[in-house]
Write a protein that binds this DNA or RNA. Structure first.
Ligand code: MN
Ligand code: MN
Ligand code: MN
Ligand code: MN
Lengths: 216, 216
DNA sequence: TAATAAATTTAGACAAGTCTAAATTTTTAA
DNA sequence: TTAAAAATTTAGACTTGTCTAAATTTATTA
């Protein structure tokens, strides 16, 4: 079918497409840790295969066929992450690299049985939605805590930064998926926030507030 | 670490080494579905890495370092096969190709947790022993049913032929791992055998008898 | 033991994916 | 609205793993 490199490019285009209409060569190079020239070569290949819409110098987007493939890879990635956390007891900051390999296991039947084995989870350990076998999913209506006013509240449901460092920090502060929080104070000087969670007061910086997502 | 191709070569050398002291270029080419010239190229590479003992025209064997790696791949292959059968309800003839991909997932921590999750199984769905994290395992004392005399009995514990066709045939005849059987008759004309299993009489050809292994 | 056959290796080529350096196009901004 | 800067593509090279065809070595057998 498609090579490992092709799958990684399609997935990266998919992720970058969530923030912008069209994706640039440099964006892809940065995300894939490669050089712009290499990206251009691959874009030509993917365009030949009709998996992307690509015009020289104009950026790139997924074709319907390309998006379908990308969604299957995202599905596998998130289901394996769920497996690693729920069945093998890994922490949420430990699973990404492993899933990065596992998402390329090709059998569809395998991923569908894995899905069933885990009772069709809807969200992965980081709160990201898991596409079903047709590629459909429903994303949460997420807002950064940073956009909430004093008195507002919600349930932690996702992160914008998936780095292990950020996830470990949240874990330590007990700011994990599913926790109900309320904004009790916003410091005017540095825009840091004080949250009420369970019986605890938790002080978070503006940067953390911008990367932690809640459902209201 | 090692590439996917290198891992597959090491594993193949390991398997072929079980039947002969040293492994030939042509044996590897046949097992890996490749050409002898390609095998020679890879043997040079593995010899440079000190993973095999190789002298031109003289065949090849694994070095201690190479065997260690091969055993880890075999461990992963068999543990994933066990997972697929025991947790995801695949049949024993369906899992080999998937495990062929999964055996290359690199994380040791992952495979060790998987092992624990499944309660440290000792044998895979085909009766092959699963090495522990140090590469140690204990193989069954296996004999082909074909070597048993009339009146002899034992427990089905392995297969010599791992092909889906053979496994499906055995499944249909209910000749599966763990079943107790007894040889009740040997046909002089074609050396076929009649087995008693539970309350059933099962007639098997000499070819099947040679590929079905029991513990006495 | 000499010739033939079989096994193995070498030589030279190719596809995939990547890189650096140079050329081209687009964007920005004076 | 043009010159400089930034982004992107092209050209040419390299690595990995593979192949075919030819050369070499080993094994077989007459
Ligand atoms: Mn995730
Ligand atoms: Mn197998
Ligand atoms: Mn494999
Ligand atoms: Mn097996």
């Amino acid at each position: 079918m498609n090579t490992l490199a092709e799958e990684n490019y399609l997935k990266s285009i998919y992720h970058l497409s969530l923030n912008s209409q069209s994706v640039s060569t440099n964006q892809l190079a940065a995300l894939l840790n490669t050089k712009a020239a290499s990206v251009t070569d691959m874009l030509k290949k993917l365009a030949d295969k009709q998996l992307i819409n690509y015009a020289r110098y104009q950026g790139v987007s997924l074709s319907a066929a390309g998006e379908k493939i990308a969604l299957q890879i995202v599905r596998k990635h998130r289901l394996w992450e769920y497996f690693l956390v729920e069945k093998l007891n890994f922490k949420w900051d430990e699973v990404h690299e492993m899933a990065e390999e596992m998402e390329h296991i090709s059998s569809m039947e395998l991923v569908n049985r894995l899905d069933k084995f885990m009772n069709f989870p809807k969200y992965d350990p980081h709160g990201d939605p898991i596409p079903d076998s047709d590629g459909n999913f429903k994303a949460h209506e997420l807002k950064p805590i940073g956009t909430i006013e004093v008195g507002g509240s919600g349930i932690i449901s996702g992160v914008r930064d998936h780095s292990a460092g950020f996830l470990q920090y949240l874990e330590k502060q007990q700011l994990t998926i599913g926790k109900k929080i309320k904004v009790t104070e916003i410091n005017e000087y540095d825009n840091s926030m004080i949250l009420q969670a369970d019986d605890k007061k938790i002080h978070i910086s503006r940067e953390v507030a911008n990367n932690l997502l809640i459902v209201i």
